[in-house]
Design a protein around this nucleic acid. Structure first.
Lengths: 338, 338
DNA sequence: TTGAAAGCGCTACCAA
DNA sequence: TTGGTAGCGCTTTCAA
């Protein structure tokens, strides 16, 4: 382990100059900087993490808390973890995983020991126990997702309500008068924060546009193909021609298959829009129009907010909603009877 | 942030006594220990992580490298990350995530900066670039999975070959003379280390037992239902009555569905054994006998080896294979024509 | 059984 | 533009 004094000696400067050259917190002449940089390169110097944490004011680590629940959709979860890690590395930060049963213990531990500079909170529940804790800690927390009680918190998320409303608008603009939302499992509406928001946006905009709106979930605890088939059949029977999908990818398959079985062609007889998916919607039997949930968008912003919270003028707490974007793939058109 | 000297003052002892009472590295009288512990409790003291890293010899952090590839099976991956984190916490260690494109950069960075005490390597490829690096670093690396070239490395994994052999034995013992392995996608046999090991164990034992062995993958790059259906149909036509499944859970559904469509009842006409699954095999149409891959087994052992590698007498490098366990659920019986 | 104090390797203040 | 050095909050050696 080469230390800073060896670099200083090799470059013929003082220790402090090496430190400043590396941190950029003090001007260093070009010539000196070059000498230092090549010394660093040759010796393979890397500042000791512990010393840096102790002497400096930053640990260069963010904690990421994500309570793995059994009903968690793994691919989406992984995508967010990955996106967070990438966003953090871009700012020279590392991610420390907090996956204990009691996430609160972990948060308190890393905050009180000064191990991390901030906490990123994933997989937020409507009534999340981490909310109360975040308010107590003296390091900033950024929530990716929006708990019911978010006063004083900094939250980041896709504007799910706007996304659902946009989907309804798109369908109604096309002439559909009956729209249906195929949602997640019933339990997801209790454990997660965003399914209810999609449903609310969907129903509100449908009411505003005076169209008939139906909602069906895709199972009780876990996804059930038969529940999905029944839901699709019922909605079709009720005159729904515009479908909004906000569910797992396996449910997508079933919805499309059931529509086909019922003789409804997409987009001829039925139009379909995916809302809030992290997976590609182009590899199904029909490529689907989508208003995607892009993990990188949320995570980049979250890390950015965390960085700013550590800065001289921390931004005020508040909810940061990311506007939805619509991607066309040809699964939406006017209803056939129109 | 309460510091150690405040605890010392509150307990009426010296700083060093507090440190020793907390670390247990020096005997402390019961009375003194009690006073210190209550002071710690009351003040909410927690040792500063940076100071500990700098002064001590341990950082209490392990890095976990896991290059998220597009063909990674997310649920399994997540299960391993979670199991690793839990195992680490049990030893009072935290997990730092390394998910950069170039995992090697991350490994070198955390090793050279002394940020972590060791590295746990996940999702190991047969020809893994992290192998060469692990040999250079001066902190221990533990591989969860076995690369082709593992000389001098410490590796942990389920004994996949023995697991496949055990499945074959079970089927042959029951009277089956034709066995088929439904494997992962073709690309997984290049990118991952364990699918080839299952296949090898399967084919070797089948040869030893003089039964006919067939192998089919479940798609080229990604899982394809039609490929699976064709595979099952072909194997059935070829007289296979004993099926070994080592593939994604979505392929399981298709295999069982296709067997049903072909009029083959399980276990009456065909017997099925799951090998190396991390998901439950009891919630399919038929509950399946299984030789599961238990993430906790591998990860507990890996963390244990990492801890020992940091100890006074580090264990010699080597491959640690975990013996397979067979779980009966009623999907195996004698073939109907026997 | 306990205390005093010398570092651990940096950062950043104070000088020059 | 650069250097000297006092900490940062612990751990651990040396003494008592």
């Amino acid at each position: 382990m080469v230390k800073i004094d060896e670099v200083a000696r090799a470059a013929g400067v003082s220790i402090s100059t090496v430190s400043y050259a590396l941190s950029g917190k003090r001007p260093v002449s070009a010539a000196t900087r070059t000498r230092i940089e090549s010394a660093v390169e040759e010796l393979g110097y890397r500042a000791n993490a512990g010393a840096r944490m102790l002497a400096g004011s930053r640990t260069q680590i963010f904690a990421l808390t994500e309570p793995f629940r059994p009903d968690t959709f793994a691919p989406t979860h992984m995508a967010f973890v990955l996106a967070t890690s990438i966003a953090a590395r871009r700012q020279d930060y590392d991610i420390l995983l907090l996956t204990e049963e009691d996430a609160a213990d972990g948060m308190r531990r890393v905050a009180d020991s000064g191990l991390v500079d901030g906490i990123l909170v994933l997989d937020v529940a409507p009534a999340d126990r981490r909310v109360a804790l975040a308010r107590q800690l003296d390091i900033p927390s950024i929530f990716i997702g929006i708990p019911d009680d978010h006063a004083g918190l900094t939250c980041v998320d896709l504007d799910f309500e706007a996304a659902a409303a946009l989907a309804v608008d798109r369908l109604v603009d096309e002439g559909h008068r009956g729209v249906g939302l195929i949602g997640h499992t019933a339990i997801a509406y209790e454990n997660s924060n965003f399914p209810p928001r999609v449903r609310a946006g969907f129903e509100r905009r449908a009411a505003e546009r005076s169209v008939d709106a139906r909602f069906r979930d895709t199972g009780e605890q876990i996804f059930s193909p038969s529940v999905v088939r029944a839901a699709v059949a019922d909605l079709v029977a009720d005159g729904v021609t515009g479908f909004v999908l906000h569910c797992g990818d396996d449910a997508y398959e079933v919805v499309l298959d059931e529509l086909a079985r019922l003789g409804r062609r997409v987009p001829g007889d039925a139009s379909v829009i995916s809302v809030g998916a992290t997976f590609s919607t182009t590899s199904f039997a029909v490529a689907l129009d989508a208003i995607p949930l892009i993990p990188a968008s949320s995570c980049d912003l979250a890390v950015d907010l965390a960085m700013r919270a550590l800065g001289a003028s921390p931004p005020a707490p508040g909810v940061h909603l990311i506007p939805p974007t619509y991607v066309t793939h040809g699964s939406v058109g006017p209803p056939s009877h129109a």
